[in-house]
Design a protein around this nucleic acid. Structure first.
Lengths: 77, 77
DNA sequence: TCTCATTTGTTCGTATGTATC
DNA sequence: AGATACATACGAACAAATGAG
């Protein structure tokens, strides 16, 4: 899935994949996303998975709860 | 005991120390090993102690019982 | 039965060192 | 030089299960 040799850095590739899954409804609001799951599924380092999630967070697509995980959707006010 | 500056990561150093103690009979079968004891004795983080125990578990030298601790020896079938 | 302490399991936050491009 | 990646580490917080009393 992730091509470490391409011009696009892995963390952005991963962010894109997740963004598309969210848009497609494959990851509906409320879905929990765990960093360690991403490292396994996409074979990237935790840092890389975190950076990808940071992108989605900046996009407002997910929110993260320390010690719990990240969730698809808008952060509860 | 543990040298955090060396080329060998602390979790492997700790795994080695424990492995040797087991082999030497200093930690006979049935001996209970608690993560928090390791963090104190070797001054490592709990996660580091856990990683060391994971190594020993993979080696089949110990088994772990959730909420109870790890024990030297083969897991009860 | 209930409550409490203990202990492992899980997970994020953050930092560092090394390597690669 | 800078951005990126991986491995590792420490810290913190919370969940869940067990066992003692």
């Amino acid at each position: 899935m992730i091509d470490p040799t391409g011009p696009v850095p892995p963390y952005r590739q991963l962010a894109k994949i997740l963004r598309e899954r969210i848009r497609a409804g494959e990851l509906p609001p409320g879905t929990r996303i765990v960093e360690s799951d991403l490292t396994e599924e996409f074979e990237v380092a935790r840092n890389t998975a975190r950076r990808a999630l940071a992108v989605l967070r900046d996009d407002g697509l997910i929110f993260t709860v320390p010690t719990r995980g990240s969730y698809v959707g808008k952060p509860p006010k």
